[in-house]
Protein backbone atom coordinates (compact mmCIF):
# COMPACT_ATOMS: atom_id res chain seq x y z
CA UNK A 1 0.00 0.00 0.00
CA UNK A 2 1.55 3.22 -1.17
CA UNK A 3 1.76 6.09 1.22
CA UNK A 4 2.15 9.15 -0.91
CA UNK A 5 4.47 12.01 0.01
CA UNK A 6 4.09 14.53 -2.81
CA UNK A 7 2.23 15.48 -5.97
CA UNK A 8 3.98 16.94 -9.02
CA UNK A 9 2.01 18.54 -11.83
CA UNK A 10 3.08 19.52 -15.35
CA UNK A 11 0.95 21.80 -17.47
CA UNK A 12 1.45 24.05 -20.47
CA UNK A 13 -1.00 25.85 -22.73
CA UNK A 14 -4.44 26.07 -21.18
CA UNK A 15 -2.72 25.88 -17.81
CA UNK A 16 -4.24 28.91 -16.12
CA UNK A 17 -7.80 27.63 -16.47
CA UNK A 18 -6.82 24.07 -15.63
CA UNK A 19 -4.93 25.07 -12.49
CA UNK A 20 -7.70 27.38 -11.32
CA UNK A 21 -10.14 24.52 -11.53
CA UNK A 22 -7.95 21.81 -10.05
CA UNK A 23 -6.33 23.78 -7.23
CA UNK A 24 -9.59 25.53 -6.50
CA UNK A 25 -11.05 22.21 -5.44
CA UNK A 26 -8.23 21.16 -3.13
CA UNK A 27 -8.90 21.76 0.57
CA UNK A 28 -6.67 24.07 2.61
CA UNK A 29 -5.43 21.05 4.56
CA UNK A 30 -4.59 18.86 1.58
CA UNK A 31 -2.18 16.39 3.20
CA UNK A 32 0.61 16.54 0.59
CA UNK A 33 2.86 19.20 -0.93
CA UNK A 34 2.06 19.99 -4.58
CA UNK A 35 4.89 21.05 -6.92
CA UNK A 36 3.96 22.55 -10.26
CA UNK A 37 5.75 23.40 -13.47
CA UNK A 38 3.67 25.52 -15.77
CA UNK A 39 5.24 26.81 -18.97
CA UNK A 40 5.12 30.59 -18.86
CA UNK A 41 6.95 33.51 -20.40
CA UNK A 42 10.41 34.20 -18.89
CA UNK A 43 9.42 37.64 -17.64
CA UNK A 44 5.96 36.75 -16.34
CA UNK A 45 6.76 37.74 -12.74
CA UNK A 46 5.06 36.01 -9.81
CA UNK A 47 1.53 37.16 -10.67
CA UNK A 48 0.36 33.62 -11.34
CA UNK A 49 1.10 32.40 -7.80
CA UNK A 50 -0.63 35.45 -6.32
CA UNK A 51 -3.67 34.99 -8.53
CA UNK A 52 -4.05 31.33 -7.64
CA UNK A 53 -3.44 31.98 -3.98
CA UNK A 54 -6.30 34.46 -3.95
CA UNK A 55 -8.63 32.06 -5.71
CA UNK A 56 -7.82 28.85 -3.85
CA UNK A 57 -8.32 27.59 -0.32
CA UNK A 58 -4.96 25.84 -0.39
CA UNK A 59 -1.86 28.04 0.05
CA UNK A 60 -0.17 28.75 -3.31
CA UNK A 61 3.27 30.36 -3.60
CA UNK A 62 6.17 30.74 -5.97
CA UNK A 63 8.98 28.34 -5.00
CA UNK A 64 12.03 29.89 -3.35
CA UNK A 65 15.46 28.38 -3.51
CA UNK A 66 16.33 26.12 -0.61
CA UNK A 67 12.82 26.06 0.74
CA UNK A 68 11.57 23.05 2.73
CA UNK A 69 8.70 21.18 1.08
CA UNK A 70 5.72 21.06 3.43
CA UNK A 71 2.19 19.60 3.12
CA UNK A 72 -0.87 21.70 2.26
CA UNK A 73 1.24 24.01 0.10
CA UNK A 74 1.40 24.47 -3.65
CA UNK A 75 4.78 25.55 -5.06
CA UNK A 76 4.94 27.03 -8.55
CA UNK A 77 8.24 27.02 -10.43
CA UNK A 78 9.36 30.63 -10.99
CA UNK A 79 9.51 31.87 -14.57
CA UNK A 80 12.89 31.24 -16.24
CA UNK A 81 14.17 28.74 -13.62
CA UNK A 82 13.98 24.99 -13.38
CA UNK A 83 12.50 23.66 -10.14
CA UNK A 84 14.10 20.59 -8.57
CA UNK A 85 13.73 18.54 -5.39
CA UNK A 86 16.85 17.77 -3.37
CA UNK A 87 17.50 14.56 -1.48
CA UNK A 88 16.95 16.30 1.85
CA UNK A 89 13.45 17.31 0.73
CA UNK A 90 14.33 20.94 0.07
CA UNK A 91 13.62 22.71 -3.20
CA UNK A 92 16.32 24.05 -5.46
CA UNK A 93 16.29 26.20 -8.58
CA UNK A 94 18.53 26.09 -11.59
CA UNK A 95 19.31 28.44 -14.46
CA UNK A 96 20.50 25.60 -16.69
CA UNK A 97 19.50 25.79 -20.35
CA UNK A 98 15.91 25.02 -21.33
CA UNK A 99 15.05 21.32 -21.65
CA UNK A 100 12.79 20.52 -24.62
CA UNK A 101 12.60 24.29 -25.16
CA UNK A 102 11.15 24.80 -21.69
CA UNK A 103 12.44 26.52 -18.57
CA UNK A 104 10.97 25.61 -16.19
CA UNK A 105 10.74 22.09 -17.57
CA UNK A 106 8.31 19.42 -16.41
CA UNK A 107 10.87 16.67 -17.07
CA UNK A 108 13.43 18.33 -14.80
CA UNK A 109 10.98 18.58 -11.90
CA UNK A 110 9.53 15.09 -12.38
CA UNK A 111 12.90 13.35 -12.73
CA UNK A 112 14.35 14.97 -9.63
CA UNK A 113 11.16 14.37 -7.62
CA UNK A 114 11.01 10.73 -8.75
CA UNK A 115 14.53 10.17 -7.43
CA UNK A 116 13.65 11.66 -4.04
CA UNK A 117 10.09 10.46 -3.42
CA UNK A 118 10.19 7.12 -5.28
CA UNK A 119 6.92 5.23 -4.78
CA UNK A 120 5.64 8.10 -2.70
CA UNK A 121 5.14 10.31 -5.75
CA UNK A 122 2.02 11.10 -7.75
CA UNK A 123 2.80 12.66 -11.15
CA UNK A 124 0.07 14.53 -13.00
CA UNK A 125 0.11 15.69 -16.63
CA UNK A 126 -2.50 18.24 -17.69
CA UNK A 127 -3.29 20.12 -20.89
CA UNK A 128 -0.37 21.25 -23.06
CA UNK A 129 0.88 21.63 -26.61
CA UNK A 130 4.25 19.88 -26.43
CA UNK A 131 6.07 16.77 -25.24
CA UNK A 132 7.61 18.04 -22.03
CA UNK A 133 6.89 15.64 -19.17
CA UNK A 134 6.96 12.40 -21.12
CA UNK A 135 10.44 11.50 -19.86
CA UNK A 136 9.39 12.66 -16.42
CA UNK A 137 6.43 10.27 -16.21
CA UNK A 138 8.70 7.40 -17.25
CA UNK A 139 11.06 8.25 -14.41
CA UNK A 140 8.16 8.35 -11.96
CA UNK A 141 6.97 4.90 -13.02
CA UNK A 142 10.49 3.47 -12.94
CA UNK A 143 10.85 4.67 -9.37
CA UNK A 144 7.56 3.12 -8.31
CA UNK A 145 5.35 6.21 -8.27
CA UNK A 146 2.02 6.58 -10.02
CA UNK A 147 1.02 8.65 -13.02
CA UNK A 148 -2.25 10.45 -13.59
CA UNK A 149 -3.01 11.97 -16.99
CA UNK A 150 -5.79 14.32 -17.95
CA UNK A 151 -8.04 12.65 -20.50
CA UNK A 152 -6.82 14.03 -23.85
CA UNK A 153 -10.44 14.40 -25.01
CA UNK A 154 -11.03 16.62 -22.01
CA UNK A 155 -7.84 18.70 -22.37
CA UNK A 156 -7.85 22.15 -23.95
CA UNK A 157 -4.70 21.07 -25.81
CA UNK A 158 -4.21 17.29 -25.91
CA UNK A 159 -0.55 16.90 -27.05
CA UNK A 160 1.06 16.79 -23.66
CA UNK A 161 -1.38 14.21 -22.23
CA UNK A 162 -1.08 12.16 -25.43
CA UNK A 163 2.72 12.25 -25.28
CA UNK A 164 2.65 11.14 -21.64
CA UNK A 165 0.26 8.28 -22.45
CA UNK A 166 2.49 7.22 -25.34
CA UNK A 167 5.55 7.27 -23.06
CA UNK A 168 4.21 5.20 -20.21
CA UNK A 169 1.21 3.35 -18.92
CA UNK A 170 -0.77 5.78 -16.83
CA UNK A 171 -2.43 4.57 -13.63
CA UNK A 172 -5.37 6.91 -14.05
CA UNK A 173 -6.76 8.84 -17.01
CA UNK A 174 -9.42 11.25 -15.83
CA UNK A 175 -11.21 14.42 -16.78
CA UNK A 176 -10.08 17.61 -15.10
CA UNK A 177 -13.34 17.86 -13.17
CA UNK A 178 -12.59 14.52 -11.47
CA UNK A 179 -8.91 15.20 -10.82
CA UNK A 180 -9.17 16.89 -7.42
CA UNK A 181 -11.34 14.09 -6.02
CA UNK A 182 -8.90 11.49 -7.32
CA UNK A 183 -5.91 13.28 -5.78
CA UNK A 184 -7.72 13.56 -2.48
CA UNK A 185 -8.56 9.92 -2.32
CA UNK A 186 -5.00 8.97 -3.28
CA UNK A 187 -3.52 11.40 -0.78
CA UNK A 188 -5.79 10.17 1.98
CA UNK A 189 -4.57 6.65 1.24
CA UNK A 190 -8.25 5.95 0.63
CA UNK A 191 -10.11 3.67 -1.68
CA UNK A 192 -8.99 4.91 -5.09
CA UNK A 193 -8.25 1.89 -7.20
CA UNK A 194 -4.80 1.35 -8.52
CA UNK A 195 -4.71 0.43 -12.14
CA UNK A 196 -6.09 2.19 -15.11
CA UNK A 197 -9.27 3.98 -14.22
CA UNK A 198 -11.14 5.59 -17.04
CA UNK A 199 -14.02 7.92 -16.70
CA UNK A 200 -14.96 9.67 -19.90
CA UNK A 201 -12.04 8.20 -21.89
CA UNK A 202 -13.23 4.77 -23.03
Amino acid sequence: MAKFRAVVIGVSSGGVQALKLLLGELPADFPLPVLIVQHISPDAGNGMAKLLNNLCAIHVKEADEQEPVVPATVYLAPPNYHLLVERDGFLSLSADPPVSFARPSVDVLFESAAAVFGEGLIGVILTGANYDGSRGVQAIKQNGGIVVVQDPDDAETPQMPLAALAATEADHVVALADMAALLQSLAGGGAARRGRSTTSHA
Binding site: L84, E86, R87, S92, S94, D96, E111, S112, A115
Partner: peptide, 9 residues
Protein backbone atom coordinates in the same frame (compact mmCIF):
# COMPACT_ATOMS: atom_id res chain seq x y z
CA UNK B 1 27.00 21.37 -4.88
CA UNK B 2 23.24 20.79 -4.61
CA UNK B 3 22.61 17.15 -5.52
CA UNK B 4 19.75 17.41 -7.97
CA UNK B 5 21.38 19.76 -10.47
CA UNK B 6 24.80 18.18 -10.42
CA UNK B 7 23.22 14.77 -10.87
CA UNK B 8 21.36 16.04 -13.95
CA UNK B 9 24.51 17.49 -15.44
Amino acid sequence: YADASIKRR
